[in-house]
Simulated scan of single mutants.
Amino acid sequence: MPETILLVEDDQDILDIMFYMLSDEGYQVLRSSGEDALDQAITGKPDLILLDHRLQTGWGADICRVLKSDTSTKNIPVVMVSAAMHMEETAREAGADGVLHKPFDMHQLLNLVAGICRPPAEPQP
Rank of each mutant, 00 (worst) to 15 (best):
3 E>T: 12
3 E>S: 14
5 I>G: 11
8 V>L: 07
8 V>S: 06
10 D>Y: 10
12 Q>M: 09
13 D>Q: 09
17 I>F: 08
17 I>L: 12
18 M>I: 05
19 F>N: 15
21 M>V: 08
22 L>N: 11
22 L>A: 12
23 S>R: 04
24 D>V: 10
24 D>A: 13
25 E>W: 12
26 G>L: 10
31 R>D: 04
31 R>I: 04
34 G>R: 06
38 L>D: 00
41 A>D: 01
46 P>V: 00
46 P>F: 02
47 D>M: 08
48 L>D: 04
48 L>W: 07
51 L>V: 01
53 H>A: 03
53 H>T: 01
58 G>Y: 08
59 W>G: 01
59 W>D: 10
60 G>I: 08
63 I>G: 03
64 C>I: 02
65 R>D: 00
69 S>Q: 10
70 D>P: 13
73 T>A: 05
77 P>L: 03
82 S>R: 02
83 A>L: 02
84 A>G: 02
87 M>T: 09
89 E>V: 01
89 E>N: 04
90 T>L: 08
91 A>C: 07
93 E>P: 00
95 G>I: 14
95 G>E: 11
97 D>A: 05
99 V>C: 00
103 P>N: 06
106 M>C: 10
107 H>V: 11
108 Q>G: 09
108 Q>M: 04
109 L>C: 05
109 L>R: 11
109 L>T: 03
110 L>C: 00
111 N>H: 13
116 I>A: 08
122 E>T: 15
124 Q>W: 14
